[in-house]
Design a protein around this nucleic acid. Structure first.
Lengths: 101, 101
DNA sequence: AACAAAGTTTACCTAAAGTGAAACATTTGG
DNA sequence: CCAAATGTTTCACTTTAGGTAAACTTTGTT
């Protein structure tokens, strides 16, 4: 299942509504259809599928497990370059971004 | 032409190397293969193709032309939610994000 | 050349990301 | 059931995005 789209909301609204929840996604396309803050679930599920702990991922990326936890749980909204770093250094993959008009 | 990939670099390194330059992209696929800071070019080119000024885009998104300029020129590295706002409110499109392993 | 329109830069503020250590909680394996 | 491993939260601090107005520069038009 793809991550479904949400309406635009602020980070605060999102926290109230979705704190602790995670979407589930199917491989192995890992298409996100992104939207809002579901990026955490994408990273979480990818990490699990690759059999990594947060600590192992953190080491590859060059950060700490507490930070990875925050990103996975959408407590901090990462920048694109941060997500990219995780995908590239942590998963050895590539982040793709496109605009659908 | 798609935006080509770059190696990982810091924002500082990028500024020194690429300041002022912009990639060009072809429509209408607007696939980004993102990577680093080329998102500015993606927004710039999309805006031009839609015949909008920075001021018009800014108004739709609910910001100012100076901010749009900074994003297009990669002076500020936007968050995903910001890019999404521009794509959604400004272009009436959708931002898509995926991980390619 | 002169003027208008569009784009860039500067300056300045606030709120949130980025960061990590350590404490705490939860899950898993023996 | 206990210990070890894994994951989450708290606290604390620094950097940077988000945001705007105004000055300035570039580009386009007559």
């Amino acid at each position: 299942m793809k991550i479904e789209n949400n309406d635009l909301m602020t980070l605060e609204e999102f926290k109230v509504k979705n704190y602790g929840k995670r979407g589930t996604i199917e491989r192995d396309e890992l298409e996100a259809g992104y939207e809002n803050f579901k990026i955490g679930a994408l990273i979480h599920d990818t990490r699990i599928e690759m059999g990594m702990t947060q600590e192992q991922l953190a080491e590859k990326v060059g950060t700490t497990k507490s930070y990875i936890s925050k990103i996975e749980n959408n407590i901090k909204e990462a920048r694109i370059s941060t997500i990219q770093k995780i995908v590239k250094l942590g998963f050895g993959g590539q982040l793709e971004l496109s605009i659908k008009l």
